[in-house]
Design a protein around this nucleic acid. Structure first.
Lengths: 336, 336
DNA sequence: CTGATTCCCGTTAGCGTTCACGAATACTGG
DNA sequence: CCAGTATTCGTGAACGCTAACGGGAATCAG
C-alpha cells in the first residue's frame, strides 16, 4: 500500500511530474485542459502531497512549535486554541511540548523542535522563567517579554490597562477605600496590575497605603481566602476588593461571608480572568476578561508572517482586556 | 546560515557521509576510533539530523497526531500532558489540532494529518460524536470506543468501576438512600457510571427507583444546582448524593446549603473527577479521581507500539479510577 | 602461503518534491 | 513567410538522509 506519488499521477495521464507539481502549486504556466485532467486524476488516485518531501526541498516544514508549562489553566488553554486554529487556517500545524515545571528543559525542547525543522516557535511560559539565549534563526513569539533575540515578538494582554479599567470602574461607582489582593509580585502580571490600579487611583488622588494591599503566596482559592482575612483586618472599612484572579475572588467571597459581610451590599468584589465559574458564583462575579483566543490568533499571525518577512520583523504588541460587568459590584452604601 | 549536514561532518574529518550516519544510528560496524572522532565533530559543528530528510527515506515522521475538541477541561488537559510526555520520551512529537464543536471537520483534520505523514493518531473526542469510517493505515487510539478500524485501540478510564467504588464507599458508610445526579445520559461516561452504581447497590439489595435519579442537562454547576433541588424534592429523605462530576457537586453544595442541610452532617456528597478545587470546598469534597496523565501515557505507549507491530495490534484497555476520600462523606445520622 | 572470514567503510541509488533551465509549440506583427 | 514573443511542458539536479551492495585491509585457519 505505497502512498500515491506525484509520478503516479503524472504517469497516469502521460505528463511529467513537474507539471503535476505546477498544478498543485497553482502556477500559471499550465494549459487549462491539462490542469483539469491533472486535478481529475489527483482526485481519482487520492493523491496527497508528501509534506516531508516538500519540506525537504522548500526548507519549510509548515510547522509551528509551541512550548507551554501546562494547559491546565483557562487562559493558556484558550490561547492555545486560538493559536492552533489561526495557524491551521494559514496552513501551519502545531507541535506541542510541555516543559517541566521548573522549565529547565526549555533549551533541549527548543533544540528538538529545531531539529524537526519547525518554522517558528511560540512560547507560552510565565515571565518568571529566565529564558535561555536562543541561538535560533527562526522567529519566536512569546507571551510577556523575551530577551534580545532579533527575531523575537512579544505579545501580552495589557495587564496595566486591565487593572486600570477595573479600578476605574470601582472609582466610578463611588468606591474610595479599595483593598487589593495581588498575585505573587514576582509574577509580571501581578506587578502590572498593581501599576494599572495605581494609575487609576492617582487620577482621583485617592491615597494609597500599604494597608490597601495583601500579596497572596500563590493564585489559589485558599491563598485568596487567607489574603482576604488579613485584608479585612488591616483595612476594615474597605468597600470594595480587587482580586488579581477569580480563584482568589472566590476565596474572598468565602472570607467575607464568614465575617458576615454581604456581597455586594457591604463589600463589592472584582475579579480577574473571567473564568466560566464567574457567572455561577453568588452573586455572579464581575471580572476582567483576557481575550485568550484573540491573543493566540495574534501570536500565530505575527509569527507566521515573520517567517517569510525574515529579518527584524520585531514587534511588540498588547491586546486590551475587557471588563465583564455582573452583579458583584454596586455603589458603596453611605452608612459605611 | 545553512544548516549543518551529514556531509559537512563527513568532510570535516575525511570520512563518508554514510559512516557518520552509521555513528548516529548506533550501528555496530564502525571502528571505535572513528566513532569518537565523528561524535567530536558532530558536537563541534553543532550538527542536528534533519528529521524531514530522515523521515522521507524511513517513511516515519515520528509524529503523533492528536485531535481534541478542547483542552479547557481538567481531564483532557491531563491526558494531553501524559500523552505528550510519554510520546516525547519515545522520540515522538505531537501535532495538536482542535476539532470544531460539532466535530464535523474531523475527516479533514485526519486527512491533513495523514498528509503530514503522522505515524499514528490519538483521538480525545467524546463518544457522542459518530466517527467517520477512517480509511487510514496508521494505528488510531481513542478514548472511549472506536469503530471497526482494524488498527484501532480503545482506552478509557473504567467509569463503571469508578462509580462502583463510589457507591460501595457510601454503602459501607451505612448509606441506603442515595440520590444520583447524573450527567446527560447520551454521554457514555454518564451511562457507565449509572451502571457501576447499579451494580454496587444490587450487591446490598438496595432498592432503586427513578426517584433516586436526576439527569442534568449539561455538566455545569448551575445544572447541578437545579438537579439537586429537584432531587431533594423527589427524594427528601436521602442521606447522600453521588454527583457525576465535581462541578455539579458544587451546585449540590449550594442547593443543600440553601435548604439548610449541612454537609456532611445531614447529607453526604460524593463527586467525580477530583478537580483541584475539591480540596478548597467546604467541606473538602471526596471525589473519584480519573488518572488522566496515566491514561495519556498509556495511549502513547499503545499506539506507538502499534506503529511498528503493524497489523492487528488491536487492544482495548481500561484504567482504574481511584476514590479520593476527603471530608464530605460520613455515616448517616440515625435520626434521619 | 592461500583462501575464507571478519571488520570497516565508501559508492550508488533512491525517498517525493521543487528549482533552474531550456526546448518545443503556438501565436504575433510586419 | 519569418523572426520574435508567449505559452506550455519536460529534463536534470538537488534537498539531507539511509538501504543495499560491494570492496579493501586485516585476521584467521589449514
Amino acid at each position: 500500500m505505497r502512498q500515491v506519488t506525484l509520478h503516479d499521477v503524472a504517469n497516469a495521464i502521460g505528463v511529467s511530474a513537474q507539471t503535476v507539481s505546477r498544478v498543485i502549486n497553482q502556477r500559471p504556466d499550465v494549459a487549462d485542459a491539462t490542469r483539469v485532467r491533472v486535478w481529475e486524476t489527483i482526485r481519482q488516485l487520492g493523491y496527497k502531497p508528501n509534506i516531508m518531501a516538500r519540506g525537504l526541498v522548500s526548507r519549510r516544514s509548515h510547522v509551528l512549535g509551541v512550548i507551554t508549562l501546562t494547559l491546565n489553566d483557562y487562559f493558556r488553554s484558550e490561547v492555545m486554541t486560538g493559536l492552533e486554529k489561526d495557524a491551521r487556517a494559514r496552513g501551519y500545524a502545531c507541535h506541542l511540548s510541555f516543559a517541566k515545571e521548573d522549565a529547565d528543559d526549555l533549551p533541549e525542547l527548543v533544540d528538538s523542535m529545531l531539529a524537526r525543522q519547525v518554522d517558528a516557535i511560540a512560547l507560552l511560559m510565565p515571565k518568571r522563567f529566565v529564558y535561555p539565549e536562543f541561538h535560533v534563526d527562526v522567529p519566536v513569539v512569546s507571551i510577556a517579554h523575551l530577551l534580545d533575540h532579533p527575531r523575537a515578538i512579544n505579545v501580552d494582554v495589557d495587564n496595566i490597562d486591565g487593572a486600570y479599567q477595573a479600578i476605574r470602574y470601582l472609582l466610578d461607582q463611588g468606591h474610595r477605600t479599595i483593598g487589593h489582593i495581588t498575585g505573587p509580585m514576582d509574577w509580571a502580571p501581578a506587578a502590572d496590575r498593581v501599576e494599572g490600579a495605581r494609575r487609576a487611583l492617582a487620577e482621583e488622588q485617592v491615597p494609597l497605603t500599604l494597608r490597601n494591599y495583601v500579596e497572596s503566596k500563590d493564585w489559589t482559592l485558599q491563598s485568596g481566602y487567607e489574603a482576604a482575612c488579613q485584608l479585612l483586618e488591616q483595612l476594615p472599612d474597605l468597600t470594595a476588593i480587587f482580586c488579581h484572579n477569580d480563584w482568589m475572588a472566590l476565596g474572598a467571597y468565602r472570607a467575607l461571608r464568614e465575617m458576615g459581610r454581604r456581597i455586594p451590599t457591604d463589600v463589592s468584589v472584582l475579579g480577574y480572568d473571567d473564568l466560566p465559574i464567574c457567572q455561577f458564583m453568588e452573586p455572579p462575579l464581575s471580572s476582567v476578561r483576557q481575550p485568550g483566543e484573540g491573543l493566540g490568533q495574534l501570536m500565530a499571525q505575527l509569527v507566521i508572517t515573520a517567517i517569510d518577512h525574515a529579518e527584524a520583523y520585531r514587534q511588540d504588541m498588547l491586546v486590551p482586556a475587557e471588563l465583564m460587568v455582573r452583579d458583584s459590584v454596586i455603589a458603596p452604601s453611605l452608612t459605611v
